[in-house]
Design a protein around this nucleic acid. Sequence first.
DNA 1: TTTATTTCGGATAATTTTATCCTATTTATA
DNA 2: TATAAATAGGATAAAATTATCCGAAATAAA
Lengths: 144, 144
Amino acid sequence: MFSKACEYGIKASIFIAVNSREGRRVNPKEIAEEIDSPQAFTAKILQDLVRANLINSVKGAYGGFEINKNEISKIKLSQIVRAIDGDRIYNGCGLGLHTCDETHPCPVHDKFKLVRKELKDLLENTNLEQLALNIKSGASFLKI
Amino acid sequence: MFSKACEYGIKASIFIAVNSREGRRVNPKEIAEEIDSPQAFTAKILQDLVRANLINSVKGAYGGFEINKNEISKIKLSQIVRAIDGDRIYNGCGLGLHTCDETHPCPVHDKFKLVRKELKDLLENTNLEQLALNIKSGASFLKI
DNA sequence: TTTATTTCGGATAATTTTATCCTATTTATA
DNA sequence: TATAAATAGGATAAAATTATCCGAAATAAA
């Protein structure tokens, strides 16, 4: 569904959100431990998210990654996925046809629209604050 | 969503179904042309489908791939996907957690269930005959 | 200003997925 | 029985994804 990079990116963003709500910056080492991911690879993905303006980085001593407190609830999962995996999940044909639309549909086009709609709803209607709160309360988990 | 191999496998199966309905065997060359896929790679995938007993192969002169006419409507998309991609699409966690269930859910577990449900419905409720008929009638396409 | 700490970014490596090639085996038919 | 036409399957290659390493640049604090 999502690439490994995107899975790490989503989980890392949630962990950063959890900590940013409490005014704490985090670094790739902590992040990788908390989301059970390869550290250096995760750091690369964080760079992508910084470039996409979804998270902030602070270089130097006492630096790390953070998200502006009042931005946390504004960042949707869709933005993270798009920054890492692009929009193939939105526009790609389920069977890989180059062009697949109403006038030239692949064999599963119609049925696939429903799947994509659910996925789109998920990504568009979920923000980092909701996810961070659930992690904080122990209602959901970032690893294992 | 699906691997490339799985996309090829689905499209190949549909093309074989279209031809088997008319009593015609097809070979990897024709198949690859009709579904716009790499021939040798497609041939490998066909072997997987043969081993999974979803399609039949006939070796030797005038051989090729076919599906028993009265089996075509019984083969569900889910069987093809499972034979090639396994059941990660059914059981895998959206964020790659090793264990992800009601008691230990990933952050998107609940919402993801809906996506998976739609996908499952698609795969369980679509058989090769329906898809073959739509190709035959020009209502859907296997390439471009 | 120096030092320690941290992100940035390029180079490289490992792994997985996708793709190709070649030979062996099977089989229908002439 | 010989031949031609097919699939089967192993070996290998190419490409994409995932992962690691290291030095450069930035920055806070001593």
